[in-house]
Design a protein around this nucleic acid. Structure first.
Lengths: 240, 240
DNA sequence: CGCAGGATTGAATCCACTCAAGGTATGTGG
DNA sequence: CCACATACCTTGAGTGGATTCAATCCTGCG
C-alpha cells in the first residue's frame, strides 16, 4: 500500500496503523506520518471483554484511548445507585475528556472492545503542536454535544414507547459501517437493563415496549439481541 | 485604566470593550488588542427584550453573539409542539454553534439580554489565525457537554421533587458573580413554564413542588420570581 | 376597575413503576 | 446426557406519581 501521504521521509506508516479504523476517520487522520510514528511508540492495542470498567467516575485519568471496535457506554450514577447512561462511543471516537485531570463519567465496555491506549502526556504533547488535532477533538466534542441535546429531548419529553423506538432508530442509523447508510438488521449493543439506563426507564418497561413493537410488526426480534427493522420509516414514525 | 496588555501598539482597547464581561472571561480574553480592534469594526451591541427569538432551529446562521448580560435559553421542539430546553447561556458565553452552517437548536432571550453580535465570517477568520480562540471555544463546548450530561441524569432518573430542587440549586450556584460563590437570594431567570420545559415536567408539577419546598421551609418565595435559600446544604439534600 | 398572563390548587386519570412469577438461553459439574 | 445454576428477558397485577383538565388566585397595567 503506497497510499501514504508524501510527508513520509524515512519510515512508512507504522504497522499497527495500516488498517486502523482511526487512521482516516479518527484523530490519527489529521496527523502526519512522522507524528503518527512518534505517537505509536507509546500506544498499545488492547482488547477488553464486555462489562469491564474502563474509566471510573472521579478517578484521575492516566490515558486516553481510541475506540477501534465495539461500543463503550458512558454513565453517571447517583449516590443511591440510580444510573443514567450519558453517552455511547463507537469507533473511531476518542475516549477520555481532553484537558481534564479527572473523569466526570465512568466508562464501561458494552460489548467486547478493541482500544488503542494513548498515554495522557503523549496526546497532550501532540495537542500542543497540532492545531489540526485540537480541531478534530473539538469537532468530536461538538458532535457529542449535539447528540446529548437530542437525547435530552427524548429523556424529558417522550413517552416510553417513543423512547424505545427512538433508541432503536438511533442504533440502526449509528451502526452502519459508512455512518451514512443505516443498518436494517443488527445486534443490539446493550442489554435491556442498559437500554433502560439509557432511556430513563426500567427493564420491564423496555421489555414491554419492545414486545409491543414486535407484535405490531415494526421490528422482529431473534434471540433477544438481534433486531430486524423491515421498514425504517415506520419505526421513525414511532419516535414522536 | 492602563492595565491593557502591552501588545497594543497604536491604539488602546476599543471603547466598547473597556468594561465588557467578555473581555477577560469570554472569548475576547484570548485576543490581542490588535485582533480585538479589528474585530470590533464588525461587531455591534444590541439589547433584546425577554421572549425574543434570537436563533431559529434549522435556520442558517448569519452571526454569533457574545452574551454580555442576561440569560439565553436553548431549546428543541418536537413536531407536535412538545418542547425541551437543552441549555442555558449566561455571560460571557458565546451563542452559536461553531463550524455549523445551520443551527440545531433555537435560542430565545429568557430575560432582557445584552448581546455583542459578531458576523459569522469575522469570527471564522479569527478562528483560522488564533489557535487560542479555538481552544477557548473548545473549553466552552466541553463545559456545555459536562453540563448536558449532568442534566441528563436529572431528566432521566430524578423524581419531580428532586428535579425542582436540582434546578434551584443549579441557579443558585450559577448566578453568582464570581462563578465560585453561590447566591443565596436571586431572581429566577425562567418562568414556571420554562422551568417545566427545562426539567421535563408540566407547569403544574413545577408549581406544586415549589410550593412544597416553600411550606417545608427549604426556600422562600417573594413575588413568584424572587427566591431565597436560607440553607443551601438543605436544598442540596433534596437533589437526590 | 377589569382584564390578561402567569401561578397556584384541586380532582380524576393514566402511564410507568414496583413487586412477583415464570420463561429462555448458556454454562457447569455429576 | 441431564440436572442444576445463573443471567437475562418477558409477562402480569396492583400501586403511585405525574399528568390532564378545570377552577381560582394573584399582580401588574391600561
Amino acid at each position: 500500500m503506497q497510499t501514504v501521504r508524501s510527508d513520509t521521509r524515512h519510515h512508512d506508516l507504522p504497522a499497527p496503523c495500516q488498517n486502523c479504523a482511526a487512521r482516516h476517520l479518527g484523530i490519527c487522520g489529521v496527523l502526519t506520518a512522522d507524528q503518527l510514528s512518534e505517537l505509536t511508540k507509546t500506544t498499545r492495542h488492547v482488547r477488553r471483554p464486555a462489562g469491564e470498567e474502563l474509566l471510573a467516575d472521579a478517578m484521575p485519568i492516566a490515558s486516553y484511548a481510541n475506540v477501534l471496535a465495539g461500543v463503550v457506554k458512558l454513565s453517571k450514577v447517583l449516590e443511591d445507585g440510580r444510573q443514567q447512561l450519558v453517552g455511547l462511543q463507537f469507533a473511531p471516537d476518542l475516549l477520555g475528556r481532553p484537558f481534564a485531570t479527572q473523569s466526570r463519567v465512568s466508562a464501561e465496555a458494552a460489548s467486547d472492545v478493541d482500544l488503542c491506549i494513548i498515554p495522557k502526556p503523549a496526546l497532550e504533547n501532540l495537542l500542543r503542536e497540532s492545531a489540526a488535532l485540537e480541531h478534530r477533538l473539538m469537532m468530536q466534542a461538538l458532535r457529542e454535544l449535539d447528540e446529548a441535546r437530542d437525547w435530552m429531548v427524548t429523556l424529558g419529553r417522550k413517552s416510553a414507547a417513543e423512547k424505545v423506538a427512538s433508541f432503536l432508530y438511533l442504533i440502526a442509523t449509528h451502526l452502519g459501517p459508512s455512518e451514512g447508510e443505516p443498518e436494517t438488521t443488527f445486534d443490539l449493543p446493550l442489554s435491556r437493563a442498559d437500554i433502560g439506563d439509557f432511556l430513563g426507564l426500567t427493564v420491564e418497561t423496555v421489555s414491554r415496549q419492545m414486545s409491543r413493537l414486535r407484535v405490531e410488526g415494526v421490528i422482529e426480534i431473534e434471540n433477544f439481541r438481534h433486531v430486524t427493522v423491515p421498514d425504517l420509516a415506520r419505526l421513525r414514525l414511532r419516535c414522536g
